[in-house]
Amino acid sequence: MPIHESGMSSTGSVLVRRHSKLVVSRIRAAWVFLLPMLLLLLVVAGWPLLRTIWFSLTDATFSNMEQASFIGLENYLIYEDGEWFGILADGLWWRAVWNTLTFTAFSVSLELVLGMIFALVLNAEFPMRGLVRAAVLIPWAIPTIVSAKIWGWMLHDQFGIVNHILMSLALIDSPLSWTASADLSLWAVIVVDVWKTTPFMALLILAALQMLPSDCYEAARVDGIHPVKVFFRVTLPLIMPALVVAVTFRVLDALRVFDVIYVLTSNSSDTMSISVFARQQLVEFQQVGYGSAASVLVFLSVMSLTLIWMYLSNRSSNHGGVK
C-alpha cells in the first residue's frame, strides 16, 4: 500500500523520485515475500500437474515411468479394429462418473437442508447454546477415515447398532448389509459424508445468519407476519449469496471424494468415485498412463466447474449484485 500519493506528488521532484524509489523497493520486497510460497506451489502443484498431463499421453507404467513413449490420446479414446478403447469407452469409468454425480447431488442437498436446520436452531437463544455449538463441530473434526470406520461398525450387517435399532423399531425384519449390497452401499457412503460435513455447512450458514440486520425482523414481528413466511421472504433471499458460496465449495469437494468411499466400501464398483477409479488404475494396476488420463479428466471437470463459477460470481459482482 503506497503512502498517500496525492499529498506527495505536489511537493517537488526530489520527493517524487524518492517516493517512486520506495514504491519500486516495496514491489521488489513483495515479490521476495511471495517467492518461497510460489516456488513450493510450483513443486507440489504446477509441475506435477504438467507431468500428470504428459503421462496421460504416454504408455507409462510404474516400472518404466522414465522411458514411457508418447502415444497421443490413446489412453482417452482410440478406434481400433472396429472397437472403441480408452477411458471414454470404459464402462467402469462412466459408472464412476455416475456414482460421483449421484453422491454429490444427494449429499450436498441433504447437507444443505440439515445444515440450514442446524444453523437456524443455533441462531436462536437458548441455555447452553455454546456447548451445543461445540458439539456440532465434533463430526467435522473427526478424521474422515475414522468416521468411515465408526460408521462401518455401526452399519455392520450382523452386529451393527443401526440394524439393531431399525429391527427393534420393526422398520426392517432382517438385517441389511449396508456397505456390501449394490443398492445400499452408495447410500451408506452418503450418510457418512452427510454426518461429517453438515456441521461445516451449518457453520457457514450460521455465520451468514448472524450478519443479518435485526430491524427487518422486528418490523415483521410487529406486523404479525408468520415466521415461516419471514424465513422464505426475508431470511432466505438475504443469505442466498452465502448459500451459493457454501454449496459451491461443497460441490467441488464432493466431486473429489476419495477417503470415505475407499475405507467404507474399498474398490467396489457400486460406489467407486472418479478419484477412486483414477487411484486404482495408477497404484493398484500400475497403469500410470491410463490412470493419469483419468486424473486429468477429474481435474478438467473440477476446474471447468470452478472457472464457470468464478466467471458467474465475477459477473454478478461487477453488476453490483451479490458477491
Binding site: 506435477p48 503421462f55 515411468m65 466431486l255 472418479i274 495408477l282 490412470g291 486424473s295 477429474v298 476446474m303
Partner: peptide, 22 residues
C-alpha cells in the same frame, strides 16, 4: 490470488502421478 484460489480447488488425485515422481 487467482492462482492460489485455483490451486485450492485442485483434486489431489490430479497431481498424484506427477507428485509421486517429484
Amino acid at each position: 490470488l487467482m492462482v492460489i484460489l485455483a490451486v485450492s480447488m485442485f483434486p489431489q488425485v490430479a497431481v498424484l502421478s506427477g507428485l509421486f515422481e517429484v
